[in-house]
């Protein structure tokens, strides 16, 4: 066991982990932050996407010890300080961008990373960026719409009902 310390959603945390402990396991099992989901074992589904030092990474494909000292953000830390949904979360609700909710944390975290580097992405840029996030429920229509809306674009006009 080795001690690992990091900042998660602005809070300092630490714990004893094995070399093989994944960041996703550390978040879920040690910190009980179960909003980060694990949907595959080949780094494809993206349900486990979190931010490490501001960048989107697949937490089930990164060792917890690799995140020692890092600033980690998870879905649990995304809402506004008053607890209300942030702009992206609100857009997902407004545009029905989720159904079963399992892929949703990863989608929201990826969307946040996208909008940070590209504040007004086109439909094509959004679809391309979501290459690493699988959703089986929505057919992606309303996810793309929600992200456009979150970036201040008129999603209704672009995606005719």
């Amino acid at each position: 066991m080795t001690q690992v310390s990091m900042t998660v959603n602005g809070k300092s945390v630490s714990g004893d982990v094995e070399g093989r402990t994944l960041l996703s396991s550390f978040l879920r099992d040690h910190l009980s932050l179960t909003g980060t989901h694990v949907g595959c074992d080949t780094a494809q589904c993206g349900a486990c996407v979190v931010h490490v030092n501001g960048e989107a990474v697949k937490s089930c494909n990164m060792l917890a010890l690799e995140a020692d000292g890092a600033d980690v953000g998870t879905i649990e830390g995304q809402a506004n300080p008053d607890g209300s949904l942030n702009v992206i979360q609100q857009a997902f609700q407004d545009h029905h961008g989720l159904q079963c909710g399992f892929c949703t944390p990863g989608m929201v975290m990826s969307a946040a990373a996208l909008l940070k580097e590209n504040p007004r992405p086109t439909e094509a840029e959004i679809r391309k960026y979501l290459e690493g996030n699988l959703c089986r429920c929505t057919g992606y229509h309303n996810i793309v719409k929600a992200i456009m809306a979150a970036s201040g674009q008129d999603a209704g006009k672009i995606a005719a009902e």
Binding site: H37, V38, E76, Q93, H96, T104
Partner: peptide, 19 residues
């Protein structure tokens, strides 16, 4: 009507079996 279940799913507060 907007979905009320969304709030917990969007904030990581869902309760799935593996949780």
């Amino acid at each position: 009507s907007k979905r009320r279940e969304d709030v917990r799913f969007l904030t990581g507060a869902g309760n799935y079996t593996d949780d």
